[in-house]
Amino acid sequence: MKVRITIMPQAAVLDPAGVATAHALEHLGLHGVSSLRIGKLIELDIEGATEEELHQACRDLLSNPVMEDYCLEVIS
């Protein structure tokens, strides 16, 4: 099973790196960026795990529910 997990900072959490990168895009000449947020993308191959176990791993380790949301997709 191939799984893709996208982890993003929650909307209420300030993302200083995202803000700085948005400013850099302005300097590059790409204007009109109203929001830029930086998260993480994790891909893993795993056999024998249930989706619930994967969700548990997302909550316990791969994301921090205090500040991040995650999205889990089974790709194949």
Partner: peptide, 17 residues
């Protein structure tokens, strides 16, 4: 300690980077 759930909240990148 925050990650372990022994203290509430979390520590993120300094706002000024």
């Amino acid at each position: 300690l925050c990650e372990a759930g022994l203290l509430p909240g979390t520590l993120i990148r300094n706002r000024n980077l």
